[in-house]
Structure formats: structure tokens, C-alpha cells
Computed example of a mutant assay.
Amino acid sequence: MADNTKKLKIYQILFAALTLAVMVTIFVFSSEDADTSSQTSSSLTKVAVTIIDKNYYNEPPAKQQEIWHQASFIVRKLAHFSIYTVLGFCASVAAGRRRLFTLRSLGTVLFGFLYALSDEFHQSFSAGRSCEFRDMMIDTGGAALGMLISVAVMGIVGIIAAKRRKTKIKQ
């Protein structure tokens, strides 16, 4: 039994380190000025425009610009949501195994919210970037989803581990 506790602590330390790594990644992206940030997302936007409109390159320039603008918006917001989903997942696993409606689960989402708040504030100091409440809410939603996924994964892993222990005891 003590061995399981030791593994859990190592696992939590690993995910705490991953949480810190994701936080640094977010900080670096938020430090980019508007032009650099646009270049970073433009390669994904190129893919998105062809998904949104298969005939994109045959459209008139005004229509291409409209499609590009929409795709760029979607890519940027999905990037916010996705990286904060990873942050929420890592922070939640670092918080340890638990049920969904606990203070630690709420704390994980609150942590995501507070980091999103600080990130948006930090981003406002980068040239051409701004602090947007909408982005903060998208980020928080991503952190909440990451927490939900982690609780589900930890629950499934717990069920599998319990079944394996039962099988070992019977043998």
C-alpha cells in the first residue's frame, strides 16, 4: 500500500512539472507581439481556410479575406481553449485523485481562471495585443474541460487498478 502512495506522489510531481512547463509555454506565446503571433497561427489558418471553403483559392479576393478572417479567429480561439485544456488536465492530475465535485476540482478551475487573468494582463504589454475578457473565459472553459477529462481518466484508471487488485487477490 505504501508503494502506491509513493507512486502517486511521483506522478503528482511529474504533472506539477508539466503544469509549470505549460504555464511557461503560455507565457512565451503571450509575450509575442501581434505580428509574430499572427505568423505563428497563420500555418494552421491556411489549413482551416481549405476546410471551411474547399474552393478558397478560386474565390474572389474579398471573399478570401472574409474566410481568412473567420478561420484565423477560430484557430486563435481554439489555440486558447486547447492549451488551457492541457493546463487544466495537468494541474488537475497534480492535485491528485478525487471526485468531481470537490474543493480541489474547484481549485483547479480557479487556478486556470487566475492564470488566464494574469496571462491576459501580461499579454496587454505585448505590442499590438490586448487583454480580452472573452479570451479569459475561453481559457477558463479549457481549464474546466481539462479538469473534467482528468477526473474521468483518473476514475477509469482507479477502476482498472481496483479490478486488477481483486484479480490478484483471487489468484
Results as ranks from 00 to 15, higher is better:
residue 35 D to L: 15
residue 73 F to L: 15
residue 33 D to A: 11
residue 106 L to G: 14
residue 84 Y to K: 06
residue 40 T to Y: 12
residue 82 S to M: 12
residue 49 V to M: 02
residue 65 Q to R: 00
residue 75 V to Y: 02
residue 65 Q to W: 02
residue 31 S to W: 10
residue 35 D to I: 13
residue 107 G to C: 07
residue 86 V to R: 10
residue 92 S to A: 15
residue 83 I to N: 00
residue 42 S to I: 03
residue 65 Q to S: 09
residue 73 F to D: 14
residue 71 A to V: 03
residue 65 Q to I: 06
residue 38 S to Y: 06
residue 56 Y to A: 13
residue 75 V to I: 12
residue 93 V to Q: 06
residue 32 E to G: 06
residue 68 W to C: 01
residue 92 S to C: 15
residue 106 L to E: 05
residue 36 T to V: 11
residue 54 K to G: 13
residue 33 D to F: 04
residue 80 H to W: 13
residue 86 V to H: 07
residue 29 F to M: 15
residue 34 A to V: 14
residue 73 F to K: 08
residue 42 S to Q: 08
residue 45 T to Q: 00
residue 102 T to K: 05
residue 49 V to H: 01
residue 51 I to F: 14
residue 96 G to E: 08
residue 54 K to F: 08
residue 59 E to D: 12
residue 106 L to A: 12
residue 69 H to Y: 04
residue 49 V to C: 02
residue 57 Y to T: 15
residue 63 K to E: 07
residue 74 I to C: 08
residue 82 S to V: 15
residue 53 D to T: 15
residue 72 S to Q: 07
residue 81 F to Y: 10
residue 108 T to F: 11
residue 40 T to N: 08
residue 65 Q to A: 12
residue 54 K to M: 11
residue 83 I to M: 09
residue 96 G to A: 11
residue 63 K to I: 11
residue 58 N to P: 00
residue 32 E to D: 10
residue 58 N to V: 02
residue 100 L to N: 07
residue 100 L to H: 04
residue 94 A to V: 11
residue 103 L to R: 13
residue 41 S to R: 02
residue 60 P to Y: 06
residue 98 R to A: 13
residue 48 A to E: 00
residue 34 A to G: 02
residue 94 A to R: 09
residue 64 Q to S: 11
residue 69 H to I: 01
residue 95 A to F: 11
residue 102 T to M: 12
residue 42 S to L: 04
residue 71 A to G: 04
residue 67 I to E: 05
residue 51 I to P: 00
residue 69 H to R: 03
residue 99 R to S: 14
residue 47 V to P: 03
residue 33 D to Q: 10
residue 80 H to G: 03
residue 89 F to H: 06
residue 46 K to N: 13
residue 31 S to P: 13
residue 64 Q to A: 08
residue 90 C to S: 12
residue 94 A to I: 05
residue 87 L to Y: 04
residue 73 F to N: 14
residue 87 L to P: 03
residue 100 L to I: 07
residue 35 D to C: 02
residue 100 L to S: 08
residue 51 I to G: 04
residue 35 D to R: 03
residue 74 I to P: 03
residue 39 Q to D: 15
residue 109 V to R: 01
residue 38 S to A: 13
residue 106 L to V: 12
residue 50 T to E: 05
residue 37 S to I: 10
residue 97 R to G: 04
residue 57 Y to S: 14
residue 105 S to K: 05
residue 105 S to T: 11
residue 62 A to D: 09
residue 76 R to E: 04
residue 96 G to K: 09
residue 86 V to N: 12
residue 76 R to A: 05
residue 84 Y to N: 09
residue 63 K to T: 07
residue 69 H to N: 12
residue 48 A to C: 06
residue 97 R to D: 09
residue 83 I to P: 00
residue 59 E to F: 06
residue 73 F to S: 12
residue 56 Y to T: 14
residue 37 S to Q: 08
